[in-house]
Amino acid sequence: MQKITRDQIVSKAVSLLQDGTVSAVLGWRQGEFCYDVTPSVFNTAEDIEANFVWNDFCGANFSKYLVSKTKNIDGKLLVFLKPCDTYSFNQLLTEHRFNRESVYVVGIPCEGMVDISKVKAVSGEGIVCAESKGAGLSVTTIYDENPKEIPYAEVLSERCLNCKSKKHVAYDELLGDEGEVIDSARFDEVEKLESMTSEERFAFWQGELSRCIRCNACRDVCPACTCEKCVFDNPNSGAESKAPTNSFEEQMFHVIRAFHVAGRCTDCGECSRVCPQNIPLHLLNRKFIKDINSFYGDYQAGAEVGMRAPLVDYDLGDLEACDVFERRDSE
């Protein structure tokens, strides 16, 4: 499925490591299961050649790892970024979260990543092998040694089906061709929510959010969540909580988080990818993005370094709060 091969990425990583351009490589390593791929730092060419992984499960957005992994590094860290990852990369640079000089970015094309929960829905649990084969995934489980072929259209993750850009907005070097920004249908789901009555919408979110187990995976993976101390961990913030004590509290967690990343969220979709309860968290953020676009003109966080986000910028043409209500009422 992926246009670019593991060999191409590995040879690029090895050559950059060996010619001294970089001193370490941030890449993917095999985890417990075949579909379980873990971000990892590689320090030697041998390690890369033996253990570097590139397949349809390499969804992890590496941008956030740069904040911690470049802290104590001599020389540069090589990072492979898919197009959507580069937006988070720029946003983090805008917020001065790491030094651009400590990073060497190789942009790699992406044809979309697979959502394992969608695969399991077709194949059942106990997957032992999931490989790319033609226009689909060939899946073997412990219950059935005959591989089952599932078309990609059925198993690509939601964020990839609604991919917003194949264009790299930041890189030092590009493997493959320059892509384009895509006019995606990513706001369709938001519009569906908007067309609900407030009671229906409340019921929808209550249904989704009541499944939250407060594992904090969404927060921990989110490239916009890089605070030194998160408000949810800070006893002085008034919002501190470690676990859901009632159904209202977990709503507060997700609503506060959506507000905190508003205007900074690049819609990379990592929150929904890592959620063990499959809560469509990205829809909260997309509602903000859609509103910002309609209130202040189209804005894509991370499109450039140093952009002033509409919510922390002001000009005389800005929408007043009363106009928002007027618009809402007239709709």
Binding site: T94, E95, H96, R97, T226, C227, E228, K229, N234, R308, V312, D313, Y314
Partner: peptide, 11 residues
Amino acid sequence: MCNGCSSCERV
């Protein structure tokens, strides 16, 4: 607690 993100400087 400061991240150094420059949001405050910008506003």
